[in-house]
């Protein structure tokens, strides 16, 4: 077995004439934390959507945990062990915290009742408490609907959801974009916890300080292409910005963008 958890080869996505993602070759080691940076519209979220099966890629291959995968949808990806916090939060406003954490994978009893099988509210509540405890997320009352929560609290719920379920790879697309200082810190703490537990992570972020604080390696996207692959020790903020803006392009990616 190799120690590579995720590998993409020539991963490409075109939306009609828009080449949102072009020939992305990317590899992630087990337990490694990698940041993806790049300007708005550079193709970061598109990259995430191809890996997680939210969309079907135009071209290329994805290898996950040693085997080539073709996820038909995000559920396939989740079942394979990829937990994702999407940029647009997939939360149901009118449901409470445990309901959202377990949406689509509810704990049930009396399963012979098929679609009318009963929810095991107690088990889900207990697991929610454990998950929130693990991530140190503060929520006034988990029985309240998400609608009445602040943007930060919602984000925490979405992140607690990924942290509650053991996974092989966690992907977060701009998890702190809408958060205040304290909430950002909470999310960063969750990410550190994941690192301690040896879980692999892809973090899409625009926040330079955060990226240098948290990850081992930085990938830069520009106009749909990967233009740099930088170990944290070998680079600095100015350098990364140069790649983002196009002032510089990594030697091995020359001619790409």
């Amino acid at each position: 077995m190799s120690d590579i958890i995720l590998e993409t080869t020539d991963l490409t996505k075109h939306y009609g004439g828009v080449h949102a993602l072009e020939g992305a070759n990317f590899a992630l080691k087990k337990g490694e934390h990698v940041a993806i940076m790049g300007d708005n519209g550079a193709g970061k979220s598109t990259f995430v959507r191809q890996i997680t099966g939210v969309e079907q890629r135009t071209r290329g291959t994805v290898k996950f945990d040693g085997a080539e995968v073709n996820f038909a949808g995000p559920i396939d990806a989740r079942e394979a062990g990829i937990e994702t916090v999407f940029q647009t939060l997939a939360l149901a406003d009118d449901l409470n915290v445990p309901d959202n954490l377990f949406l689509g994978r509810e704990k049930t009893k009396w399963n012979f009742l098929g679609p009318f099988r009963f929810l095991d509210y107690k088990a889900m509540r207990d697991d929610t408490m454990a998950g929130l405890e693990k991530t140190a997320v503060k929520i006034p009352n988990i029985k309240n609907t998400i609608r009445n929560m602040s943007g930060g609290q919602r984000q925490c719920v979405a992140i607690a959801r990924t942290a509650t379920f053991a996974s092989k790879l966690t992907i977060m697309d701009e998890p702190t974009a809408a958060l205040g200082v304290q909430e950002t810190e909470q999310v960063e703490n969750i990410i550190r916890t994941l690192k301690e537990q040896g879980e692999s992570l892809i973090l899409v972020s625009h926040n330079m300080r955060q990226v240098f604080d948290l990850v081992d390696r930085i990938i830069v996207f520009r106009r749909g292409r990967i233009v740099a692959n930088l170990r944290k020790e070998d680079t600095d903020g100015q350098d990364v910005v140069a790649y983002i803006t196009g002032a510089k392009t990594g030697a091995e990616f020359e001619g790409a963008a």
Binding site: R78, A90, P115, F116, R117, L119
Partner: peptide, 27 residues
């Protein structure tokens, strides 16, 4: 009972609340 206690009820609320989220969650 069906609407408050079963998976059918929960998914009905989820779809009405945020259909995209429900779909993303595998419903």
């Amino acid at each position: 009972i069906i609407m408050t206690q079963t998976i059918y009820g929960k998914h009905t609320y989820a779809i009405g609340s945020n259909e995209a989220a429900a779909r993303m969650s595998g419903i």
